[in-house]
Amino acid sequence: LEARLEQANLLKKVVDAIKDLVQDCNFDCNDSGIALQAMDNSHVALVSMMLKAESFSPFRCDRNIALGINLSSLMKVLRCAQNEDILTLKADDAPDVVNLVFESSESDRLSEYDIKLMDIDQEHLGIPETEYSATISMPAAEFQRICRDLIALSESVAIEATKEGVKFSCSGDIGNGAVTLRSHTNVEKPELNVDIALSEPVALTFSLKYLVNFCKASGLSGTVKLCLSSEVPLLVEYTLASNSYLRFYLAPKIGD
């Protein structure tokens, strides 16, 4: 494997966003790119990352390899990179280590690190292509704000999408709270658009603790996409450049 990223910052942000949810994961490398799928310890949340080969320049992977990496170790090394550094990941065919090289585009500084790999026996889930009842695109910062505001009142949030809009509501010991967003197009600032595509109304309840955790990815993309259907996990998607993505799935709360 040899994969060169223009900005080390991208991988730094991805790992930073998921390291509190999952600890040890396999980075599955093949000629289409680098993928990761891992569930949290409670098995109700799942991270699915895809960094397509096109996100790297160049990208070469001659043989499928799984790089088992402890994310806290990876984060320690990524913190040694400057945000603007060029990052090259390298691994042999049957690797014991993954090699990370940081190059400054402005100076002649070159730093090199090896991280020891681990054998990780990871359960892989088959995630079906789903036609969701509701798909909501909104500013990532807005979603983060709503989750952070509501977690002050309650541990769970009801997300209800209707043709009127999308309502995030919660109730707790001190009282209730709700935020409603309607579809909204801002020609001057398209990054503020809220788009609600609905085939049928849907209402589901989720644990805010996990949603707040997912929102750590807000720095990766201006927009977040929420996809909901009755009785299936919520998909929270941050789209990256070159069709790469960081997706989170969360099982809905169920009644007594």
Binding site: H43, V44, L46, L125, G126, Y249, I254
Partner: peptide, 14 residues
């Protein structure tokens, strides 16, 4: 609402 089911019950094995 109370608990959550494991994601394995929704997604199953590939």
């Amino acid at each position: 609402p109370t608990g959550q089911r494991s994601l394995a019950t929704y997604f199953g094995n590939p």
